[in-house]
Design a binder for these strands. Structure first.
Lengths: 196, 196
DNA sequence: GTCTATACGAAGATAGAC
DNA sequence: GTCTATCTTCGTATAGAC
């Protein structure tokens, strides 16, 4: 069926995007790994490689946004734990060759300005979701925003270290300290104000 | 002179590595941007593209290692500030297209296992230098190590966000919270023990 | 040390058959 | 919807002249 072929190619494209980066994604590899018919690429994706890349980014970005929005009500702690669990699977399943698809687009040559804008849009969505989670904890506007930025930067950076070390430890260590910081803010909120 | 041509190509290669990534680095672009003679590539680099990449990674990684080792005696605060200053220049000078060369190699396809090992080696060097800086502050072994990992992850991740947002703000925000966390550990060390 | 010419392979894209 | 040429561009690498 047409829809299945298209959808299968998009999901495979996300995987390739994770492993090869945006510039390294080739239609041929997506074709091979998805098992999609070789002759139907430009039927399903008239825009060719660029359209496939766009769809992969959108699919991946929205998935994470949904996860982060759901977690804003569950509290930041559970979000972070969920991220560790997800990344443990993604990293081990890929032999530590997979990274974040949105990062992959953000650091790519990005012929089309549109893709770069979309990647930035996802980072903003994620930051907003996390900021709201921290605001719900009673933190100040600026603290919540900075903590959200730190959280995203930490996870994205730690994933790179995990790939290099072929181990989940960097992510666990980094997030352990991030949790400590969150608890420090709670402690400060409950007892006194920390010096700026 | 021979040495100048070779050295110039390496320095240009670092720049290209930052912007295009390891897989995206082409000998042609290094040639064009360095102004090096077009016919002398394989004279200076018998190993071709791979050798050029290797030299660029070594040069860049060692530069940062030197900076971090020097800063281990100056205290972590001054290191972080120095990193903000350096990245501000690198990012603005490149129009927010440049990233970390070691990260670029770490997430690349990396035909040669040797390059990947070297990249991981640099991450380890940096982590050790920062760990020592935190140990000098009187922190525990595990806290120092985790903080070092968090610091590197935060900077590397924040740089990606800076590139996406075309702004230095993410790095400043993330490092502001990192400083807060460091101060929390100092406060805890001086007054009591935080719950794990 | 540096140049030109050439071989080779990889990948995107299009045209037209089935 | 899918397939098979075929065209084109680009990048690495080598050979041999200067």
């Amino acid at each position: 069926m047409a829809r299945d072929t298209r959808r299968g190619m998009i999901i495979t494209a996300v995987q390739v995007l994770r492993e090869r980066g945006a510039d390294g994604l080739t239609v041929e590899e997506v074709l091979l790994r998805s098992g999609a018919p070789k002759g139907s690429v430009y039927y399903h994706f008239p825009g060719g490689r660029t359209e496939l890349l766009d769809e992969a980014l959108t699919y991946a970005g929205n998935t994470v946004s949904a996860l982060l929005n759901r977690a804003a009500t569950d509290g930041p702690e559970s979000v972070l734990q969920e991220f560790i669990d997800i990344w443990r699977h993604v990293l081990t399943d890929s032999g530590y060759t997979a990274g974040c698809p949105v990062v992959a687009v953000a650091v790519s040559r990005t012929e089309s300005e549109e893709l770069a804008d979309k990647a930035r849009g996802f980072f903003n969505q994620w930051a907003t979701a996390l900021t709201n989670a921290f605001l719900a904890e009673g933190m100040s506007e600026s603290t919540a925003r900075q903590l959200a930025t730190l959280s995203i930067a930490t996870i994205e950076g730690a994933v790179v270290l995990c790939r290099a070390h072929r181990s989940i430890t960097p992510l666990e260590d980094a997030l352990a300290q991030l949790r400590t910081l969150i608890n420090c803010h709670r402690f400060a909120r409950d007892n006194f104000t920390l010096a700026p």
